[in-house]
Design a protein around this nucleic acid. Sequence first.
DNA 1: CCCCATGTTCGACA
DNA 2: GTGTCGAACATGGG
Length: 296
Amino acid sequence: MPELAEVAYYCRQWQGGVGLEVERIQTHPAARIYREIPAAAIRRGLAGRTFLGGRTHGKRMLFEFSGGAWLGLHLGMTGKLCTAPPDHIPAKHEHLVLSLATLSLVFSDSRMFGKLSLDLVDTGDPPTWWTELPPQPLDRRFTKSLVHSFARRFPKTPLKTLLLDQRAFPGIGNWMADEICWQLRLTPSAPVATATGPQLDGVWKTTRRVSRVAMDVIGTDWGDLPNTWLMNHRWRDGGTCPRRGCRTELVRADLRGRTTCWCPRCQTSDRGRNNDRARDERSTQIRAMSADSPRS
DNA sequence: CCCCATGTTCGACA
DNA sequence: GTGTCGAACATGGG
């Protein structure tokens, strides 16, 4: 499930190991997890080093070890981090277990879409691939104009798909993208070009708000998001729009290969636009939809 | 058996 | 080179 807040939560799980030395490393060398760097290189690179802490950037994590060793980690779809006793024996999907004096740091991932990297850097700074990542939604450098210029590059792309692009929205994943569209009351499939300037301002602001609340609620203790959000209603069959006075049944459909959930009543792309052009676009859309519908 | 899954990357094509 | 878009990756759960 990991999106930015879940990634932050998992990163914290390893914090208890800070200051301790890596005494034993257990791997599943054949696992796909090691497609980018062999398990042997991880073992060689981390053995005997002291764990100095972790940080996150979007869906990525970076763990620092003494001597300038940096372990990069991406959780993919099913990755998780936890700790276990120092004598822990890896279970089936636990691909990396770093055993320290008082606990083990465990990385598990059943689907193995996650991946690892290891950089040895002598500057004392994180590797450059890390420092060059685009600003996160909560970063001061994540600006309105950055959202506008990125949107201009992809006029045909559906808004929801744009939000999933890690080059501009690092950490935003499927549920957050849908949540942002829903809170903005914009149709996820609407081409970015149909969004007005103020609506793009809203994309910026709502991305930041959703990220902030998610980090506060999930990032530390994995608490429950507000029931006034789409998130707590989206997976249940027959789930309804939580907006006060709406309660319309939510719709789920595939958009560019990702399950997308929205409220067909609240989320219309031309809200607030009453000019002729908007009306023309709308009738075109409706015509296109009714031409398609007999297929079902 | 079927369908579905909170992610990324690759190749084909315009 | 850039943008668009579907398929593939591997496994488990309902």
